[in-house]
């Protein structure tokens, strides 16, 4: 086929629909980090910083990696919210496109194939993550939470972490007949991960066994990587490990999704 690649046409249609709601979406993307950084970074962070500073030997400097709580928590919330956005964008809209609005079927009656439909939707989700992560970084900078030029790399890290959730979720959503499973995933997976993967406190605070579990979760690796960016020690071997883990998850999820999409849409 000549002309624009087929998946780009699928992406274009999501963009077209987004034009209707972009104002609200952009506003939310900026409001969310303002609220979180004000409440946690400044409000709660004030208490935490004072407490740690008053301890004999000033352990706070080492406990939080030698930075204030605001600086510590900002990358954690950045990737945590990327995870949440990715998950919600990868569940209900997928169900809607399959069953409710039947957008996918409309696309599949045109030159687009299931792989194009999938790729277009994933790219759209990645764009949403780029917007959210970019807005978050800008707000974090305004709050004084950005300490290194390497912080710009936290934007792709936000996208990468989000997509590590998005591709498996999309694969799963395409197998579902109802939305019941989505809230189970939300409550049993997403919320615990958000709270316990090192976003709000170092996982060293967890009991030993749970530390191990936390280290296996994708969000932990996203948080660690984003934090390395924001603090300016990105270039390490462990960064490579974190990125590799997340990339592998994206790839496995995309592979699974290409199978579940074909099974569901081209039967």
């Amino acid at each position: 086929m000549m002309g624009r690649p087929l998946w780009v046409r699928a992406l274009g249609s999501w963009g077209f629909r987004y034009r209707r709601t972009w104002r609200g979406s952009v506003a939310t993307s900026f409001a969310f980090p303002v609220l979180y950084l004000a409440a946690l970074g400044v409000g709660l962070g004030g208490l935490v910083n004072r407490h740690l500073a008053s301890q004999p030997g000033r352990p706070g400097l080492t406990a939080l990696g030698g930075v204030t709580y605001l600086v510590f928590v900002a990358p954690g919330v950045l990737v945590g919210s990327a995870m949440q956005i990715a998950t919600s964008e990868s569940t209900f809209p997928v169900m809607g496109a399959i069953k409710w609005q039947r957008l996918y079927e409309a696309m599949l009656a045109t030159p687009l194939r299931t792989g194009d439909v999938l790729a277009g939707h994933l790219c759209y989700i990645a764009s949403r993550l780029a917007l959210a992560s970019g807005a978050f970084l800008a707000v974090a900078a305004a709050f004084g939470a950005v300490h290194s030029p390497e912080a710009v790399v936290a934007l792709p890290v936000g996208i990468l972490t989000g997509m590590a959730f998005s591709t498996p979720m999309v694969a799963y959503a395409a197998t579902q007949e109802t939305i019941v499973g989505f809230s189970v995933v939300e409550r049993l997976v997403i919320v615990p991960l958000f709270l316990f993967s090192g976003s709000f406190f170092p996982i060293a605070q967890l009991p030993g066994a749970l530390q191990l579990v936390a280290e296996l979760t994708p969000l932990y690796h996203g948080v660690a990587l984003a934090r390395a960016c924001m603090l300016g020690h990105l270039v390490t071997l462990s960064s490579l490990g974190h990125a590799g883990y997340l990339l592998a998850l994206v790839a496995v999820g995309a592979w699974a999704a290409s199978r579940t999409y074909r099974a569901r849409l081209a039967s």
Partner: peptide
Amino acid sequence: LTVLDNLLVYGRYFD
């Protein structure tokens, strides 16, 4: 979407 937009979006799938 509106009636017109439905046609516009669809036409773009055909490039």
